[in-house]
Simulated scan of single mutants.
Amino acid sequence: MKRKIIIELISSLLILLFLYASLSKWLAWRTFIGDMNNQPFPNWMTPFLVWTIPTIEVLIAFALIFEKLRVKAFYASLFLMSAFTIYTVAILFHAFRYIPCSCGGVIRKLTWPQHLVFNLFFVGISILGIMLKKRDPVHAVEV
């Protein structure tokens, strides 16, 4: 019972994160596009990234709602948050000259070290979610 509550809490936190992040990007669309154009990626990637990133965030949040998709959603969350974390580490090591934060809402206000801690927290709970779901007797039978 305790494991189920923790899984639900982890899922809820990730759902809130991804829905908030995607919605804040869409609500500040022009700012998001401008920030993405200022990233160290070629500008031809911007149209792909500005549609793909928030869409993936919504799809992960949606998948976390459903029990049968939850392990895959935890893995997707782990992958996405790990990519953001690696990018944050590269920024902290000054791999790029200038990097605007293309995050939305209050997340945008975090410093880069705070971003790292924030991202690592969500990487950690994604891993914990995977581990707890894999030990779930219902999931073990389905695999």
Rank of each mutant, 00 (worst) to 15 (best):
W51I: 13
T55K: 07
L64H: 08
M45E: 02
M45I: 11
L69G: 07
W51P: 00
L59G: 00
L78E: 02
L49N: 05
W51K: 06
T46I: 04
T46K: 12
K72D: 06
N43D: 11
K68P: 01
S77L: 11
L49K: 02
I56L: 15
Y75C: 10
F62M: 09
L78Y: 12
A63P: 00
V50S: 03
S77C: 06
A73T: 01
T46L: 10
R70E: 07
A73G: 09
E57K: 06
N43P: 06
K68W: 13
E67S: 12
E57Y: 03
L69F: 15
N43R: 15
P42M: 13
V71K: 13
T55D: 05
F48N: 00
S77F: 12
V50H: 06
L69S: 14
V58H: 06
P42T: 09
I53D: 02
M45P: 00
Y75S: 07
A73Q: 05
I53E: 05
M45A: 14
T52Y: 14
F48S: 08
W51S: 06
K68D: 10
E57M: 05
F41Y: 14
W44R: 02
T52K: 08
T55H: 04
F66C: 03
V58P: 01
T46C: 08
I53W: 07
N43F: 09
F41V: 09
T46F: 10
A73H: 07
M45L: 15
V58K: 11
M45T: 15
F48W: 12
F74D: 03
Y75G: 04
L59M: 14
E57F: 05
F66S: 09
L64M: 12
A61G: 04
P54H: 05
A73V: 03
R70L: 08
L78W: 13
M45G: 00
I53A: 09
W51F: 14
V58T: 03
P54C: 04
W44G: 00
M45S: 15
F62D: 02
N43W: 13
A61I: 01
A73W: 07
I60W: 03
L69I: 00
K72C: 11
K72P: 01
A61Y: 01
L59R: 00
P42E: 05
W44H: 06
E57P: 04
F48C: 10
V50N: 02
I53G: 04
N43K: 15
T46G: 07
